[in-house]
Design a binder for these strands. Structure first.
Lengths: 247, 247
DNA sequence: CGATCAGTTGACAATACTCAAATACTGTGG
DNA sequence: CCACAGTATTTGAGTATTGTCAACTGATCG
């Protein structure tokens, strides 16, 4: 079946033939969440999994929506964020292939605490709550993987809280640039994977402020900017800045 | 045995006789983490658990310490916090009886991401990692409880990030007062359970700023302050303030 | 080609932090 | 029980960082 059928918010559920199911199984087995799970359990997982597609900018869920399950990113990137009453957004996470999101309502509370939209055209795996909980119950190693993922995320949040309250924007920016640098192959030439407006939201500030601080860092000889390409000129001082948190 | 023996940082391990072990078992069974666990497993748990005492202000662990296990608060309160390079602190959590802390390193990473100190004289249960992981493996319902606790904490953090970046101090303070109000029996007369300095740190600000904003709210007729006692005078407007985030 | 949106820059305002000092509070040793 | 030392809390004056508003440029997309 290549047929697609509409799901509420623009998501499209794709039916699977046997072959597609096989490849899904293989893919699931390679995610950190399901790594090391016996094939038999992966089979079951495939049985309850649905592949859904979202176009760039499509809303995946909103804060307050009942969380009937959670998602795993296959392709594309997803933004999880909150909005203040006057419309300003704070990005909580950007998730890429292999990463799960929306798990919180599966185990605690019953609704999503934040909003999620597709940053690119996306393919996601949706895992419905009940079936998934059964699977966790039957499968301790899955539970341990999950606990590891959530624990890791708690650490990230702790760092985020720390840097929001203890560091000024230049410090947060420096830390983010170094984070990108650590993730990439070319350690000194970074490609910003987000628009500067989105980056501002991730850093808890606004585009104007980010723009000013980027030029300030360039003038001071820390970095060089060319559109979305940022070159680290003086890594030492950038590290110092990320550490101290102020310019 | 009433004997106590020193543990590194001022913690004292208390040996148990059979009767004490029974009461520990009963207590564990009543925590949300271990609620619903069969007695047999609680027995095992008791076998690996150690009760430790910390005096007020004693350091329980520091960021970077290897996490050989995690804790459960029996009596007293514990503060989990981070420190900036210039010595300012940001409180991440205040934990009371029944609440676990330090779980992250058990499942992800190997070291504590934050510091923890006793706010009062405390009794804690310490659960060593290896033994505990085995227990989780053998006991799916424990895993689900744990997942619920971590998910709940993720929600809290999300809110914290949200309010740190999207709301100003008056908004965060208002939200906190309403939170206290919701937790207490007397809905309108609140007893601040933290010193104002500590409350400032929890709200991501400094004592001077908190002090000024408290008086500002009092002058504006939102609340009345008498030492550590805060009376909510105009709940509606306080809710409005917590919502909008600005004064 | 016009329209919308992302990014930049300037002028200004607001919020919160720093530093300093006065006062109140706490706990401890005598 | 008092005196003292060390904290907490409050207030003032000044500063700094960031947010707001507005204008302008340049890119992108129908």
């Amino acid at each position: 079946m290549e047929e697609t059928e509409k799901k509420e918010q623009g998501g499209r559920k794709t039916g699977m033939n046997g072959e597609q199911c096989q490849s899904l199984l293989k893919w699931l087995g390679e995610t950190s969440l399901f790594a090391g799970m016996p094939d038999a359990h992966l089979q079951e997982l495939c049985g309850i999994a649905m592949v859904v597609s979202y176009k760039r900018r499509a809303l995946i869920f909103s804060a307050g929506d009942p969380g009937s399950g959670f998602y795993l990113v296959m392709e594309g990137r997803v933004k999880v964020y909150m909005i203040s009453s006057d419309g300003k957004e704070q990005i909580l996470h950007i998730l890429g292939p292999g990463e799960p999101f929306g798990e919180a309502p599966v185990f605690a509370g019953r609704s999503f605490p934040a909003h999620a939209v597709a940053l690119d055209d996306c393919r996601l795996v949706f895992l419905p709550r009940e079936a998934f909980v059964e699977l966790v119950t039957a499968n301790p190693s899955l539970a341990l993987n999950l606990l590891a993922v959530l624990s890791q995320r708690l650490r990230q949040f702790a760092k985020m809280v720390d840097s929001l309250s203890l560091k000024e924007v230049p410090g947060r920016l420096a830390a983010h640039l170094l984070y990108l640098s650590a993730k990439q192959a070319d350690k000194d030439v970074l490609e910003l994977d987000l628009s500067k407006t989105q980056l501002a939201s991730l850093l808890g500030t606004i585009p104007e402020t980010l723009s000013r601080i980027l030029s300030k860092l360039q003038r001071a000889g820390y970095i060089r900017i060319a559109g979305a390409k940022v070159t680290i000129v003086d890594r030492e001082r950038l590290e110092e800045l990320a550490e101290v948190g102020r310019f």
